[in-house]
Simulated assay, not measured.
Amino acid sequence: MARIAVGQAPFSADVDANVATARDLRAAASAEGADLLVLSELFLSGYRVAGIDGDRTLTLDDPRLAPLVDDGSPTEVLVGAAVDGPGGRRNAVLRFRAGDAPEVAYAKLHLWESERGPFAAGHDLSVIEVAGLRVGLGVCYDAGFPEFSRAYAHAGVDLIVFSSAFLIGEEADRYDIYHPARALESGCFVVVSDAAGSDGDGRFYGHSRIVDPRGRVRADLGETGALAWVDVSPADVRATRSALPYLDHLLPAYRAHL
């Protein structure tokens, strides 16, 4: 059994302020016994893509990350950031663990149109282990592709997490469809942290949420909520997949393409 928390808060173009917010959310999640905290897309850098090539792009040894590296919290954090490294700038998910240096846990595979200039696409899916759970990682637009989540399901994940930044409007309509559908068809929990507040061009949807393997929304933070959590057991995931055997009944002709 692992406790997974989803956090939500407005961010800015000030990396130091965003790091401090992430640290505060981590402390709150730790107080609830969370093993993992998930935060939104480009949270540490600020989502606005224009100007992302300045000091809002981080490196793994950036001293501004020290408050998350050195705070001693036992709660792992997955948080979005623009990260420079071999192969170019990535729309990445950084992983912070007690006693370890930060690492790029995942780089976004499916880039939205406005992201294709500033960012290089990632190359691989990423599965990590957290407190006995197998966790698949994604970012925002990745959730729009059923094959993406289904590939994780066939890799035996218990949970898929998405760091996202959907705006109010038509994007929010898709958001409400994507995550319950990905959970149900893949037979696993889905946790999505969506951006909150405004980036100047529009208002983010928020509504960071936890969805169970039957596609039911177990928690929703609305536009202003800060933290929610769920206890995830691999046994519960296996039981749901047994009761709703979509993975087992997928015809081999289709399965070969995953």
Rank of each mutant, 00 (worst) to 15 (best):
Ala9Leu: 00
Ala9Gly: 01
Ala13Met: 02
Asp14Phe: 11
Val15Asn: 09
Ala20His: 02
Ala20Ser: 11
Leu25Val: 11
Ala29Met: 09
Glu32Cys: 13
Asp35Leu: 03
Glu41Lys: 11
Ser45Leu: 03
Gly51Pro: 04
Thr59Ser: 14
Leu60Trp: 12
Leu65Lys: 07
Gly72Pro: 07
Gly80Gln: 08
Ala81Met: 07
Val83Trp: 09
Gly88Asp: 07
Gly88Phe: 01
Arg89Gln: 07
Arg90Phe: 13
Asn91Cys: 14
Ala92Phe: 09
Ala92Trp: 09
Ala98Lys: 15
Pro102Ala: 10
Glu103Cys: 06
Ala105Gly: 11
Tyr106Ala: 06
His110Tyr: 14
Ser114Gly: 04
Glu115Pro: 02
Glu115Met: 13
Gly117Lys: 12
His123Leu: 04
Leu125Asp: 13
Val130Pro: 09
Ala131His: 10
Ala131Val: 10
Gly132Gln: 08
Leu133Phe: 11
Leu137Asp: 06
Gly144Pro: 06
Pro146Arg: 04
Phe148Cys: 04
Ala151Asn: 08
Asp158Pro: 05
Val161Ile: 10
Val161Asn: 04
Gly169Lys: 06
Ser186Ala: 15
Cys188Thr: 08
Val190Gly: 00
Val191Leu: 15
Ser198Asp: 15
Asp199Val: 00
Phe204Ile: 07
Gly206Asn: 02
Arg209Met: 11
Asp212Cys: 10
Asp220Pro: 10
Asp220Asn: 15
Gly222Pro: 03
Leu227Arg: 07
Ala228Ile: 05
Ala228Thr: 07
Asp236Lys: 06
Asp236Leu: 10
Ala239Arg: 15
Ser242Pro: 00
Pro252Ala: 12
Tyr254Phe: 15
Arg255Asp: 07
His257Ser: 13
His257Phe: 15
